[in-house]
Simulated assay, not measured.
Amino acid sequence: MIRYPAAMLTSVGRNVEGGYALSSGDMHDDWLGADHRVAFAATAELDRAAWHQPATASVRLGFGTLPVAAAALVHLTEILVHATDLALVTGQDGRVDDAQCAALLTDMRATDFDAFRRPGMFGHERPCPADDPAHRRLLAFVRRDLTA
């Protein structure tokens, strides 16, 4: 489960710099090596450095090219949703930043998110009580099954 975020950070970091998009098969490669902490530190640094691009830049992702602002929203979604997934499966719900989840959910609802609701990306929103914590509403929005 932690292999995908490392691959995603590496891929996006390289794409923002004009590199390449990983195929879905590449996401299953060993991006962690012998020490996952070292791998995450290296990919996080690549990712941080890559986002110092002009606002007019575009980013090639696995599903197409987007303006840098839209790509940043996709990227934030990837990071926050997968981090929340990890927190939930490891019983660390209290470590999730609900303010960030609420802000992202607001931004996602303000965009044409239906373009991303296709097989392999996100399905239709699942029902979720309006008074649930923001991280649960965010996960329901991207069709995570919260009953498991």
Rank of each mutant, 00 (worst) to 15 (best):
A50I: 03
R3L: 07
V12Y: 04
P54W: 05
A50H: 07
R95F: 12
H52T: 09
Q92F: 01
A102P: 06
A130G: 02
A134I: 07
R137D: 02
G25D: 13
D29R: 15
T77F: 03
P127F: 06
L88I: 13
T111V: 14
H135F: 02
A140F: 14
R48S: 07
I2S: 14
G120P: 04
R60A: 11
D107L: 15
H82A: 01
D132M: 15
S23F: 00
R60L: 15
R14W: 06
R95L: 14
D35F: 05
R109M: 15
R126W: 08
Y20L: 06
H124L: 13
D97E: 03
G18S: 01
A21N: 10
L66E: 14
T90Y: 06
M1D: 12
F63N: 09
A115G: 01
L104Q: 04
R14H: 10
G91M: 00
V74K: 06
A7I: 08
G123F: 01
G123H: 00
A50M: 03
T43D: 05
Q92R: 07
F122Y: 13
Y4T: 13
H82L: 05
V59N: 01
M27E: 08
G91V: 00
F116L: 15
S58E: 02
A39I: 00
V142R: 03
R60M: 05
D107K: 09
Q100A: 14
T147R: 05
P129I: 02
E125N: 00
G120C: 11
Q92M: 03
E45K: 13
A140M: 08
E125T: 01
L32A: 11
T56Q: 02
A102E: 12
I2T: 14
C101E: 00
G64K: 08
P5V: 04
A42W: 03
L80I: 02
L105A: 14
Y20Q: 09
R37S: 15
S24Y: 14
W51T: 12
F122H: 12
T65H: 01
L80M: 00
R136H: 10
R118T: 09
L146C: 11
V68R: 05
R136M: 09
F113S: 09
R48V: 05
D35H: 04
A70E: 15
T90N: 13
R137L: 10
R14Y: 06
N15M: 11
V38C: 03
G18C: 01
M108Q: 13
N15Y: 02
H135G: 06
A49C: 15
H135I: 08
D97L: 02
L146A: 11
S24H: 13
L146E: 15
E17D: 15
R48M: 05
A21S: 13
V142S: 01
D112K: 04
Q53G: 04
D114M: 11
D107N: 13
A55H: 06
H135L: 08
R37A: 15
D97F: 07
Q53D: 08
H82Q: 05
A70I: 11
G120M: 10
Y20N: 10
L86I: 11
V68S: 04
I2E: 14
Q53F: 06
A34N: 11
D131E: 14
R95W: 15
I79V: 12
T84Y: 06
T111L: 15
C128L: 09
P133D: 06
